[in-house]
Nucleic acid binder design. Structure first.
Length: 620
RNA sequence: GCGCUCGUAGCUCAAUGGAUAGAGUACUGGCCUCCGAAGCCAGGGGUUGUGGGUUCGAUCCCCGCCGAGCGCGCCA
């Protein structure tokens, strides 16, 4: 069983130390990025040259940061700086002239062959061949640690929490959950690789009405098995898995939970048309179940919960998505945290009573309207437990708490942040990332999706059709705030065209070459790289060197999709080179240099794919 | 109506405020006696929905309009 457990439950509450100064994530990343390459940082070297030149050209100008970017076009060199363009405004001078003066004042460097002014005033640097290929040795020395963010330096790493999926355990996970799972898992891996201590958490909504509805749904199906049919409400859970649960209960306990249908029906209010009536009728059925079953209701309830949770968990495990903590909503009630959280807000004057209900004054924090935390019947709303849950997260000492939510929850953000602020917490420590919807298309038609009706394609079905690797990679092929149209027929019938195979194929090809060479791969780390001279070889090296920067940038932006796109580009650079130049040539020096480049490429492919939860096959 | 997320090649999607807006797919034409052709090379394809504004420079930032999805409950 993955995940730490406590009290024989799946819940785990950590008693972490509290850390008080939540600096912004991006600042930390900026600080660490400069030390990402332990051997030699070309970017820093060039920045130093520019700073020297700047000091003599414009001593008065102090720029906080010198930007060096990798040009898209090879003809623009290996690095470009827009320093002159930035200075133009303050110096009120022609950017090209500034750039030319800067270039004249650049100190000589053993790594730079050319520094020239281009375009509107860019300064383009071209590196020596040795500087361009040095990354190969760096990759081979670092191995699977290449690209990893800096280690702890003796100090505690920044602690982050990523909470994702958190689907109600009321039915199988669907393809929308799958997107949240793939995104959250990749994001968490990415952040961990970038140098953070990451906790992956699933919030289990095991309290509340939805679970009761699932329990009563299973019970009604169970009664049907004993010829005690109660008309099945249209707003109860319709899925086939509910029948299976009923059958399981019958096999385990026989007729123990059977009550006459008449007895159940007697508890119901007279039937009236209307949606409100349907909900009231469902609630009455739940009450009937609780009354008739007494203590046994708890069994049904916990049975359907544990069955559903186990199913979700197994599904996610097979998908390569793992959690450190499964946090129980119910535990927040059992330990009194919900009541305490609401009481604290009440004491600080952020809660008022109206119409018998308790309202949180979220309008004071930018929300559209105030929100109920406790209903007139005394039952807390989901919002109340969510306040307690987020306060609990903060108490556990995370420097940053990242929630991955479905886009339909976006209206929820202001009230949660407002409640945190009202509770004296720093709402800036909470980042909410919204994942847009997935629409499925089958036979050219949009598949209607409704959890309640049970009419939806499950994540498990999708994985079986498309495969885990293609599934994980496909989900990462668009940024999370972009709606995704998932054509099932296309994903299935044209799976060979899926980009994941393109990337995996590059990996398999390299494995094949290394196998044919049949030499000592470890020795390649010391290979002389001077024979690497073709443009495609330099381009591939530049792509490899980009990997650590990309990790930091993608982590800063919570953008694991950038990693998928990078891997596509990397595979493309490799295939181009591989098709143009032969690796296993007769010349031993050239052969070893190219083998080293191939091996370094394979290493980065492995590092990247494993972060996305995609396998790296030796052959396909 | 109000709010949030968006609008980029025929289609699916990229692009820390930077240079001629890029890939894949589809289409056209080439490349296997040669390390894996699930690959490579070349080509056509665009007023970045639209109109303004800020800037040396806008797909990106600000405002209006048009269009799409989602949200607006004492549900979760």
């Amino acid at each position: 069983m993955p995940g730490r457990t406590i009290n024989g439950q799946y819940n785990s509450r950590l008693n972490g130390n509290t850390r008080k100064h939540p600096e912004r994530l991006c600042i930390l990343l900026y600080m660490t990025a400069s030390s990402a390459s332990p051997v030699f940082d070309v970017r820093q070297h060039l920045a130093g040259l520019l700073r020297t030149a700047l000091a003599s050209v414009a001593p008065a100008q102090g720029l906080a940061e010198i930007v060096l970017e990798r040009p898209k076009q090879a003809s623009h060199g290996d690095f470009a700086s827009n320093l002159a363009l930035q200075l133009a405004r303050e110096m009120k001078s022609n950017p090209r002239q500034i750039a030319e003066r800067l270039v004249r004042e650049l100190p000589p460097s053993p790594h730079v062959t050319k520094a020239e002014v281009a375009g509107a005033g860019f300064i383009n640097f071209t590196l020596t061949p040795a500087a361009r290929t040095a990354v190969v040795a760096t990759v081979l020395a670092a191995g699977h640690g290449f690209g990893r963010g800096p280690a702890k330096n003796g100090r505690a790493a920044r602690r982050l929490q990523v909470e994702f999926v958190s689907a109600n355990p009321t039915g199988p996970l669907h393809v929308g959950h799958g997107r949240g799972a793939a995104f959250g898992a990749s994001l968490a891996s990415l952040l961990a690789f970038a140098g953070f201590e990451v906790t992956r958490e699933y919030y289990v909504n095991d309290a509340g009405r939805q679970m009761d509805i699932l329990a009563v749904s299973a019970w009604l199906r169970y009664l049907e098995l004993f010829d005690e049919p109660v008309p099945f409400p249209p707003n109860a859970y319709q899925g086939g898995y509910v029948h299976e649960m009923a059958e399981q209960i019958r096999q385990a306990h026989g007729d123990r939970y059977v009550h006459p249908a008449e007895a159940v029906l007697a508890c119901l209010p007279p039937h009236v048309e209307g949606a409100d009536d349907a909900e009231a009728r469902l609630d009455a059925l739940i009450l009937a179940g609780k009354d008739l079953l007494g203590e046994d209701w708890a069994y049904i309830h916990s049975h359907v919960l544990s069955e559903q949770l186990a199913d979700c968990r197994a599904d996610l495990e097979e998908f390569g998505v793992h959690f450190d903590v499964w946090f129980s909503e119910r535990s927040l009630y059992d330990t009194g945290m919900v009541a305490r959280a609401v009481a604290a807000l009440e004491k600080s004057g952020h809660i008022y009573t109206q119409d018998g209900a308790k309202w949180f004054q979220s309008t004071a924090f930018g929300d559209e309207k105030d929100r109920v935390v406790q209903r007139d019947n005394g039952i807390y709303t989901y919002f109340a437990s969510d306040i307690a849950y987020h306060l609990n997260k903060f108490e556990r000492g995370f420097d940053k708490v990242i929630d991955v939510w479905g886009a339909d929850h976006h209206g929820y953000i202001p009230r949660v942040k407002g409640a945190l602020s009202a509770s004296g917490a720093d709402a800036g420590r909470l980042d909410v990332t919204l994942v847009q919807f997935v629409s499925l298309f089958r036979d050219g038609q949009k598949v209607s999706m409704s959890t309640r009706s049970g009419d939806y394609v499950t994540l498990r079905q999708l994985r079986e059709e498309v495969g885990n690797d293609a599934c994980r990679f496909f989900y990462m092929l668009r940024k999370c705030d972009q709606a995704l149209d998932f054509d099932l027929d296309l994903a299935k019938s044209q799976s060979n065209d899926n980009p994941v195979y393109y990337v995996q194929y590059a990996h398999a090809r390299i494995c094949s070459v290394l196998a044919q060479w049949d030499g000592d791969a470890a020795a390649l780390a010391a290979a002389d790289l001077a024979p690497l001279q073709h443009e495609r070889e330099f381009a591939l090296c530049a792509r490899l060197a980009e990997f650590p920067e990309l990790i930091q940038q993608a982590a800063r932006d919570y953008a694991p999709h950038a990693l998928a796109f990078y891997l596509k580009d990397l595979a493309g650079d490799f295939h181009s080179w591989y098709n143009a130049e032969r690796v296993l040539v007769d010349d031993p020096a050239l052969r070893e240099a190219r083998l080293a480049l191939a091996l370094a490429t394979r290493q980065v492919l492995q590092n990247g794919l494993s972060l996305l939860g995609v396998s790296q096959p030796v052959s396909m």
